[in-house]
Design a protein around this nucleic acid. Structure first.
Length: 292
DNA sequence: CGGAGCTCCTGGGGGC
DNA sequence: TGCCCCCAGGAGCTCC
């Protein structure tokens, strides 16, 4: 469930720990973790060996670390791209620490200090080394929209693009090519804060409503980031393996049958898009003409 | 080409 | 106690 705030917590941790360090060796213990690296695990390891990490960057839920090649290679721009999927973790562990049960990739550094470990129970996440464009954005991230915290995010452009869509509002919020970083939890929280139903037709959403839900998404994700992110089942943790505290601040997600904080009506859980959606039946009434 | 549904995966938890 | 099934869901892929 790592969404933008959780990925940003990890990015900040990485910036503290790996920026400027040189890679000694990479071990891939589960090929699925590097399936997005088309040339295979050996190629991934070879591209990283001897290279130096730069400053970690992020767009939406995608994280990447520029890699500056060793002296023996031309310095074509490349980056190590990481997506945490549902259960991915990036941990900085002392080399002697016991391996985690779901350790997939280990990066050892030449300085012998803490190693970078990619741990992923459900294996939806993964790593790849990819070329970057003139703006430093990797291939697989180029189709991802800017996220609401990107200085170049265009609020009016978002509202216009949303209203041009012919789909349901939550579906659109989860579409990473429209706005990135929002997942199931923060979509539900943003919709509750904006008092909008998930099945509102996007072409019927007013400009003001579009601004409201965007502002709500920004607000809830900023609050979550300030608390170190949201955690469930200890699956999401920062690079030190610690959980965030935002779960206790969630207004609707995971709160089926509990009173809405605004109106005391009981929160409902509904199945939608093969996942759970939580809403207040009073604050977020079902639209006359729903779109799923 | 936009939109929608399917699928990948594992472990925790509930029901019987 | 053990087994089976459901559930969590990001995003690429496929089909219409």
């Amino acid at each position: 469930m790592p969404e933008l705030p959780e990925v940003e917590v990890v990015r900040r941790g990485l910036a503290d720990w790996i920026d400027g360090r040189t890679i000694a060796e990479v071990e891939v213990s589960h090929p699925r973790a590097v399936r997005r690296h088309a040339a295979g695990p050996l190629d991934l390891a070879a591209r990283l060996r001897g290279a130096t990490f730069g400053r970690p960057a992020r767009r939406g839920k995608y994280l990447w670390v520029p890699v500056v090649a060793g002296a023996d290679r031309s310095s074509v721009g490349e980056a190590l791209v990481v997506h945490l999927g549902m259960s991915g973790q990036l941990l900085l562990q002392p080399p002697g620490n016991p391996d985690e049960r779901h350790l997939r990739v280990r990066v050892r550094f030449a300085d012998g200090g803490r190693e970078l470990r990619f741990v992923d129970q459900r294996t939806f996440g993964g790593l790849a080394v990819e070329p970057t464009d003139g703006d430093g954005v990797p291939d697989s991230v180029r189709h991802i929209a800017r996220d609401p915290f990107d200085p170049e995010f265009d609020d009016e452009g978002f509202a216009a693009a949303l209203r041009r869509r012919h789909t349901g509002l939550k579906r659109a919020l989860l579409d990473q090519t429209l706005v990135s970083g929002i997942g199931n939890i923060y979509a539900d929280e943003a919709l509750w804060a904006a008092r909008l139903h998930y099945a509102r037709a996007t072409d019927g959403v007013t400009r003001a409503e579009a601004e409201r839900v965007l502002g709500a998404a920004r607000g809830v994700m900023a609050a979550a980031l300030a608390q170190g992110g949201t955690s469930f089942d200890a699956l999401y943790v920062n690079v030190e393996g610690e959980s965030g505290y935002f779960e206790r601040s969630l207004a609707v997600y995971g709160r089926e049958g509990l009173p809405c904080e605004r109106c005391a009506a009981l929160v409902r859980r509904e199945s939608f898009m093969n996942r759970s959606s939580y809403r207040c039946p009073v604050c977020q009434p079902r639209p006359r003409r729903p779109r799923w």
